[in-house]
Design a protein around this nucleic acid. Structure first.
Length: 266
DNA sequence: ATGCCCTCGCCTCGAGGA
């Protein structure tokens, strides 16, 4: 089972790129972030024509997350994180796919630091922390995946010293990420590539991609029941080199089948 | 310390992104 995450930075403006990548990569599950489209403007017909079912939660201009599943409809289990009924930003969606809980998230950026946006980021992180603990108690395969807007360590930033006061790298945010992981989650890319420089985002500015001035901010966190099946974790970096592309690259993992029995699904 | 580049919106600049 191949599960992917992709911050598309505008799903309608990016539709050709998304469809081309879906065709080439053929993931079974895809979590999308930054749809930047209201609920009714999600291009569901084009997604279905590509062979995917989808659930999504949109918002005018900003944010927006979706889960796509190849050849089936995702079973929606949640829109939005619990813990703040006044939070209207579309940043979390959850579905069950083949017995696995898929939580697709777009954590707040938090800049500028300090300020109310940074405070909102930390509050959102705390809500994620509390809810993630509940998910772990289910003792089923869970994947919390998406754009966390956090570089967890210095290895995840092309020039760490320049990012120390940025909301993506502030110590409070790195600690929040570490505290979340320490509940018992596995950071899939780091688990399989402990010492490699791996980036998932490159700014549009200053020729950042050509200079490989990148950040690792898109993450897969796996519950123990999912982590035991982890086989591969990769970044489709080549997609970042396409024309009219997102500033993020798609990231994906491959999980082995639950059992050794022959698969029933096609 | 800022802009760089790119998206969306209804509006050709501003806000937000990271």
């Amino acid at each position: 089972m191949k599960v992917a995450t992709y911050n598309v930075n505008g799903i309608n403006g990016r539709l050709d790129v998304l469809l081309r990548w879906l065709e080439e990569a053929s993931p079974d599950v895809v979590c999308l972030q930054e749809l930047k489209a209201p609920q009714e403007k999600f291009p569901i017909r084009a997604i279905e024509a590509a062979g995917y079912g989808a659930v999504w939660t949109g918002q005018k201009s900003w944010n927006g997350v979706a889960i796509l599943t190849k050849g089936q409809e995702p079973r929606l289990t949640r829109r939005g994180l619990p813990g703040d009924p006044d939070d209207t930003q579309s940043r979390y969606i959850e579905a069950v796919v083949d017995g696995m809980v898929i939580g697709g998230l777009y954590l707040p950026n938090g800049n500028p630091y300090p300020g109310p946006k940074f405070d909102y980021k930390l509050r959102w992180f705390q809500r994620l922390h509390d809810y993630a603990a509940e998910l772990l108690e289910l003792e089923v395969p869970v994947i919390l995946v998406g754009d966390y807007n956090v570089m967890p360590t210095k290895l995840d930033v092309y020039k760490p010293e320049r990012w120390l006061d940025d909301a993506l790298f502030r110590i409070e945010v790195r600690e929040a990420y570490a505290n979340l992981v320490n509940q018992g989650w596995t950071d899939a890319l780091r688990k399989l590539h402990p010492n490699e420089r791996i980036y998932t985002f490159w700014k549009y500015f200053r020729n950042a991609f050509a200079r490989d001035a990148g950040l690792r901010i898109d993450h897969f966190l796996l519950s123990p029941e999912a982590a035991s099946r982890l086989a591969t974790a990769q970044v489709d970096k080549y997609v970042r080199g396409w024309e009219h592309t997102s500033d993020h690259a798609p990231v994906w993992i491959e999980l082995t089948d639950k059992t050794k029995k022959p698969r029933k699904k096609k």
